[in-house]
Write a protein that binds this DNA or RNA. Structure first.
Ligand SMILES: [Mn+2]
Ligand SMILES: [Mn+2]
Ligand SMILES: [Zn+2]
Ligand SMILES: [Zn+2]
Lengths: 135, 135
DNA sequence: CAATAAATTAGAATAATTCTTAAATACATC
DNA sequence: GATGTATTTAAGAATTATTCTAATTTATTG
């Protein structure tokens, strides 16, 4: 991270999703898309940016994460009322939620299988199936 | 609903859960525990109370629903960032979430089966397994 | 290098929820 | 049933996450 090659990768990654690679988008993308799976909140990203001396604003972090989610680069995960999580792991998978730590952890893809889905109401299709195991 | 017998039932229901059956608790319980399964928000309950000429306050609806949930008379269901749902159906079951209508619907108990749960981290136990099918 | 479009930002606005505190109600004891 | 004490209720303030607004800055196009 921080080197020219990965910056170039992140730039292409945004462009391929139709997102213009502006400075703060590249900065935030650089924090998030480093190859490791993450579940971040807006506050997490603001703090990561601060530590990396990236000068930005709360509004821009919201804008950017929402744009990434809309473009399919992040997946929004809702497990508690207050705060939204954004997941960099785009593969089909489910989550442990550590209730006392407010923290998500991936359950590897394929580990969990959901069986016996009933018929859907007419005109509906499945947008997503989310399994949360609260521990 | 509204008759002496079901009022008595609701009163016992609260007492058996260690909740003192005060006037507004009985009123709200009367709205919720009528034998039909419901998924309500705070706003729903405020509106139901208004229609039933029950005089109460926003704070009391929050207090009461939170108390009922803590006592196990309601189950809190979180499927979207902003608003909490409270479920009167206490049996083990999962949900369809109608994304465009902000509405929950029960998937009958037993219809869905979750297979292949991996081992839990040491010292953890399952508090709940929640499956949400977004449609 | 203009002209134009898009992005960024600070701060205001909104929405759900919790907190504070005073008044009302419920409960226990006589 | 009256009285004293504990609990509940409720109005409004406070808090928190998020979105909106509008002005400035940055990027793209010609
Ligand atoms: Mn939290
Ligand atoms: Mn909603
Ligand atoms: Zn994940
Ligand atoms: Zn339900």
């Amino acid at each position: 991270m921080g080197n020219t090659e990965s910056n170039q990768n992140v730039k292409s990654y945004l462009q391929n999703s139709g997102i213009r690679p502006t400075k703060i988008r590249l900065s935030i993308a650089g924090l998030l898309f480093d190859g490791t799976d993450k579940h971040v909140t807006v506050d997490n990203v603001i703090e990561m940016a601060r530590l990396s001396k990236i000068k930005t604003s709360v509004a821009s972090v919201y804008n950017t994460l929402n744009q990434f989610a809309a473009a399919g680069l992040l997946r929004r995960v809702t497990v508690e009322q207050g705060k939204a999580f954004f997941d960099t792991n785009l593969s089909e998978h489910h989550h442990f939620f550590y209730e006392d730590e407010d923290r998500l952890e991936d359950i590897p893809m394929g580990a969990i299988q959901v069986e016996g889905l009933p018929d859907l109401p007419a005109g509906r299709s499945i947008k997503a199936i989310e399994v949360t195991v609260r521990i």
